[in-house]
Design a binder for these strands. Structure first.
Lengths: 187, 187
DNA sequence: TAGCGACTAGACACTGTGTCTACGACACTA
DNA sequence: TAGTGTCGTAGACACAGTGTCTAGTCGCTA
């Protein structure tokens, strides 16, 4: 395995264990089986390690599928699937995302990640809201704009976490959100 | 003004400016107009500064009102007011809460705050959900448990932030949540 | 005026970051 | 087999920040 890959793997492990932020670069290198000097040859700084992890999310296939789901001909299915896939993505990456979202305020790399993910999601939800509007499937009184706001809410990582904290399984929380979105948004 | 109060005021300022976490204890003391040694006589550590801030939230009068609102005889009004007051509280303390919630993963004091606020809120929402159930005002098919989950979602700080990010004013986002909760929860 | 409490100045040990230099191991090639 | 470049290592370094400690200052009060 490539040295660089061994290092990022170590970082992912530590993030998933929730201990990355108490861990010195020294220990990260140790876990990766390289010297600290080597680590600094591959990454400019501690923050750069986080940057590298953030870049890996875009490649997730679930995100690719989401892009196609949003414009499903059946709006009902589009909403259902969009929420389902969103929650699936959060569930898969939860262990790594939790510590990253949890340092948003002080880690520029994490902050960038959060902003970028939100912006990407927003443009997808914008497409979905517009789609629902164009097909006249929005509930009476529900504007395209409000539909967008609620879709953002129902597909956010924070919502996923909130419901998980409440003790719901991934299947349960997905169902709760799908049914709520259906009731609120669709005619 | 008391020395201790001057220090906590400085911390609040820095949190509100979003710069507390890049600021050395030295600068905090400087802003408070005291020496670093004095600061360490009042607070055991940097974390202790955050602890002190966290303790101030409980005293917020909006939270006191919330406790009474939950059991309003008119369930419709109870839901409406509960969401309104929750959003009011988040709006008032947003500047200070944002950096605290944003370091949940690495700051034990912030983590404690978040957990405690969630637990408190949960017990209030539990009372509200039970109240709605007992008065038979829950929408058909809406269990008390799911009502609780949705109330937790609709009153969370993260939800407040999500909708604010979407560009909604406090009044708009409150209205959106109140109407959504009404539609979803009440018969 | 002696004592007390609150604040200060400054030194200290310690930990962690990021940089740098010199060195070794290895493969590839002339 | 000697030469060359690449990749990793060891260890020293300057620097910044935390938390502790000691000695000392100042004003107030008995």
């Amino acid at each position: 395995m490539e040295t660089r890959a061994r290092i990022t793997a170590a970082v992912r492990e530590l993030l998933a264990e929730g201990s990355f932020h108490e861990t010195a670069v020294e220990q990260v290198a140790e876990r990766a089986g390289v010297s600290r000097a080597t680590l600094y040859q591959h990454f400019r700084s501690r923050l750069d390690l986080i940057d590298a992890i953030c870049e890996t999310f875009d490649a997730n296939p679930v995100l690719q599928r989401l892009r196609q789901t949003v414009v499903l001909p059946d709006p009902d299915a589009a909403v259902h699937e969009t929420i389902g896939l969103s929650m699936q993505f959060w569930a898969i990456e939860d262990a790594v995302l939790a510590p990253l979202y949890g340092v948003e305020a002080i880690d520029p790399a994490a902050h960038d990640l959060v902003q970028r993910q939100r912006a990407d999601r927003r443009s997808e939800m914008q497409r979905l809201a517009h789609h629902l509007h164009a097909k006249k499937r929005l509930r009476p009184g529900m504007s395209e704009r409000r539909a967008l706001d609620l879709l953002m809410l129902f597909t956010s990582y924070e919502t996923f976490r909130e419901l998980r904290f409440s003790g719901l399984t991934d299947a349960q929380l997905t169902k709760t959100l799908q049914e709520s979105a259906r009731t609120l948004l669709l005619r």
